[in-house]
Amino acid sequence: MTTDRDPAPADSGPGRPSAPGEIPLAPGDGSAGGGSPDTGRYTTLMVLAWAWVGLPFAYGVYELFQKLTQLFGG
């Protein structure tokens, strides 16, 4: 997991494209530093979010392998 984001000021309109070759680069690392409350909060959120989708998916894969085992494994 990473938090490699660099928020940059936006002065273009919503949805407007930047000029070719002129996409504004981030001025620096604007993310919360290590140990900040935000970092801890987002780490917890990350675990919960991936578990939310990962657990049902794991259930589906488990059921699939059960089926395959029954069919080919005897």
Binding site: R5, A32, T39, Y42, A49, W52, V53
Partner: peptide, 15 residues
Amino acid sequence: APPAWSRWLVPPAAL
């Protein structure tokens, strides 16, 4: 996204 938001939170939203 607010500052410190991780882009790795977006794939679970999509999923």
